[in-house]
């Protein structure tokens, strides 16, 4: 019947001065992950398995902010979160506050499949991980040298302390902010680690799925939960589509962004591209974010109002694209 389609992202809000080399590295990783997804789809793996597989790969690579390479909390530790959703029955699983689980998205999948709940967090989630026998590592494993440096810069900029919801005056930032007036999540974009990885897939049967995983915000308070694990905000899938979001978590939560794409399709009758355009233009208020989406008909779309989003997509008819700007 239908045709498959897949999209991946590695975060929205990219520093315009990001070295070319780093951009190329990101594109290579996105391409590799797309290809993993494509071959899984060609082997007829269901969409839900494909999104998990691809996000695991993104988590395991230290480049993006999830799993290994996660952003650090104000205490210099890693607290990861993830969620996954299967369109056909809207089954879902989510986890927050993980410190030792190598692949958060797989624990989210186990919450969905093996627990009576949809969402487990912190020590309870870690305990569940041990009971389920998933691979655990020391918190050190997730911490990269790059991120230790970024945390230091973020603390110097001290900018997480001021609320980005309040309009900022361009001249008040610390040194790092002066170099680059662009901000994401209250951080100068040169310090901001593009948040979050995600994958959305529709398989040949027309089943949609979505998964999102993140280390969260650089210099975040411990215990902070962002949009990634929240069903309807960072991640959503139903009969019509699958959506994964990235960007300023708080703006995404306020606009229930992922569900919004599906809701305007369902209740307003828009197609996927119209729906994605609509929510990016009308739903983000002052916020900055990006998203990837697939529909049950095999369409794929991405939208963002940030400076750039690491993204890639492919469809069964041979179309494939990997981009940053």
């Amino acid at each position: 019947m239908g045709a498959w389609a897949i999209a991946v992202h590695g975060g929205a809000g990219v520093d315009p001065n990001l070295p070319k080399e780093r951009q190329e590295e990101a594109k290579r990783l996105l391409t590799r992950c797309l290809n993993i997804g494509i071959s899984a789809l060609r082997s007829n793996l269901p969409a839900i398995d494909v999104v998990e597989l691809v996000v695991r790969e993104l988590e395991t690579d230290p480049l993006f902010n999830s799993g290994r390479g996660s952003a650090l909390t104000e205490n210099g530790t890693v607290e990861m979160e993830a969620s996954i959703m299967d369109g056909p029955k809207r089954r879902c699983g989510a986890v927050s506050g993980l410190t030792t689980v190598k692949n958060p998205v797989s624990l989210a999948r186990l919450v969905m499949d093996k627990s009576p709940h949809s969402y487990l967090a912190f020590s309870g989630a870690e305990e569940f991980a041990r009971n389920q026998g998933v691979e655990l590592v020391d918190n050190e494993y997730f911490i990269t040298e790059d991120n230790v440096g970024m945390l230091k810069l973020a603390k110097e900029a001290n900018s997480i302390l001021f609320d980005y919801r309040i309009p900022t005056i361009g001249t008040c930032g610390a040194g790092a902010a002066m170099d680059s007036p662009l901000q994401m999540n209250g951080l100068p974009i040169s310090v901001y680690a593009p948040e979050t990885v995600g994958c959305v897939v529709v398989d040949k049967e027309g089943r949609c799925a979505a998964a999102t995983s993140t280390g969260g915000l650089m210099n975040k308070m411990t215990g902070r939960i962002g949009d990634s694990p929240l069903i309807g905000s960072g991640t959503y899938a139903c009969d019509l589509c699958g959506v994964s979001c990235t960007g300023e978590g708080e703006a995404i939560i306020r606009s229930t962004l992922a569900r919004e794409v599906a809701a305007v399709m369902e209740y307003k009758g828009l197609n996927l591209h119209e729906a994605v355009d609509y929510v990016i233009k009308n739903r983000l208020d002052e916020g900055k974010a990006g998203l990837i989406a697939v529909s049950k008909n095999g369409e794929v779309a991405c939208g963002f109002n940030t400076t750039g989003m690491f993204r890639g997509c492919a469809t069964e008819d041979g179309f494939m694209e990997v981009g940053v700007w």
Binding site: G97, L230, G249
Partner: peptide, 15 residues
């Protein structure tokens, strides 16, 4: 009072 929306467990208790 925070730049965040959602705090949980120990972090929320500390806050």
């Amino acid at each position: 009072k925070t730049p965040h929306i959602y705090l949980a467990f120990d972090g929320a208790e500390a806050f």
